[in-house]
Amino acid sequence: MKEFIINNNDSGQRIDKFISKAMPELPKSMMYRLIRKKDIKLNGKRCDISDRLSEGDVVRVYVKDEVAAEKQHDLSFRSASRELDIVYEDDNILIADKPVGLDSHSNATSSSDTLINRIKLYLCEKGEYNPQEESSFAPALCSRLDRNTSGLVTAAKNAAALREINSAVKNGQLHKIYHCITVSAPPSQEDILTAYHRKDEGRNIVRISDEPKEGFREIKTGYRVLAERSRLYLIEVTLYTGRTHQIRAHLAHIGAPLLGDGKYGDPSANKRRGVFRQALCAYSLIFDLPEDSPMSYLNGLKVTSGTPEFEKRFFAERNDK
């Protein structure tokens, strides 16, 4: 038998979702069978799959000891670097300025030194995160950036904050503004573009269409030219939707590819300028949450990244002003 006492980070979840996280070795088919046979109990009583947990609830799972083995917590974050540029922090969230070359999450080719692992290490050493005390939650990123994109990433310190920020992202209540450099002028100085986006999972590349097509999802991208120098264009981009490679692919689609972009860009221009990583930075965040949100205290807060290196290099005169 395995017993869990629900803490604040576990509360609010459906019981089946909680058990899947707390006992990852337990097959889902077995879990659902245990619920049907009343071998999973909530506060000593039978439960349904859809029952939601509250702080202080007791969940007991009646299975053999070998199935109820202690969850192995991922402690790979302990080997991450302590280098972390925090631009905003409170009890619920942390906003970090991610450098170029650092993965947001672990993947098949990356080491344990990722942005989320640096954040976990920081919070663990600060005493705000102890994996041994958590059954289903770990600090998590509310968005992610490509390895070679720099800028702001929001992380949630607790489950309630994660739900709130994820909801804000989904509902367009967290406004994201980017800076980038293009190697050609966009069609106008300022515009809000609508197009249609499809990701080719096998090739990790996206396609953009001006017309609706089967399998394509609508995207909306706003841009404004901030400066021009030596046939390079410093662009401010506002994301109204957040699809994979949206800025890179959408600007390339309108004839203004990003400097340094090896996937959607202009190879000859990149070689001529000696830039081989996309000149793109998640520059600022503005919160606009509902007034009844427990995190509405963030409304009006504008968090800004440091000036990206590509902007310093090619638009130094603008940054000296």
Rank of each mutant, 00 (worst) to 15 (best):
S111C: 10
L285Y: 13
G172K: 05
T238A: 07
I286K: 12
V63K: 07
D97C: 10
L232V: 03
H105D: 09
V100H: 00
V225M: 09
D85W: 05
L121H: 02
T307G: 08
L145D: 00
D97V: 02
D48F: 10
E228L: 11
D210P: 15
L280H: 04
I286N: 04
M1H: 14
K120L: 14
P308V: 07
L193A: 01
Q13C: 01
S293P: 07
P290N: 09
F315R: 01
S11R: 02
Y129A: 04
I35H: 01
M1Y: 12
D91M: 07
I49M: 09
R46A: 13
I93D: 00
A69E: 14
D200N: 15
E190C: 11
E218K: 11
L42W: 10
G274L: 02
L259A: 07
N7C: 07
S305N: 09
D90E: 06
I15H: 01
G262S: 07
A138V: 15
A96M: 03
Y122Q: 00
A156T: 04
K271F: 11
S104A: 10
F287E: 01
I192D: 05
S106L: 13
P186T: 06
S305Q: 09
I247P: 00
D85Y: 09
G12F: 02
R118K: 08
Q132N: 13
I15K: 00
T307Y: 06
S150A: 12
P27Q: 09
K312A: 13
T307P: 12
R46W: 14
N158K: 09
I235Y: 02
V225S: 03
G262F: 05
E214N: 15
P131G: 08
T194W: 13
S293V: 04
K28G: 10
V275F: 04
L123P: 04
D16P: 05
C281K: 02
E66L: 11
F18N: 00
V206L: 03
L289D: 08
A160L: 14
A185M: 13
S136T: 03
H105W: 06
S76W: 01
F310Y: 05
G172R: 08
R313L: 10
I219N: 01
E55M: 07
S188W: 14
R52Q: 12
A279E: 04
R82H: 10
Q13V: 03
R224L: 09
F276S: 03
A195P: 06
S79Y: 11
A159L: 07
G101N: 06
V61P: 00
G222W: 06
P186G: 05
M23H: 03
A161L: 06
I93Q: 00
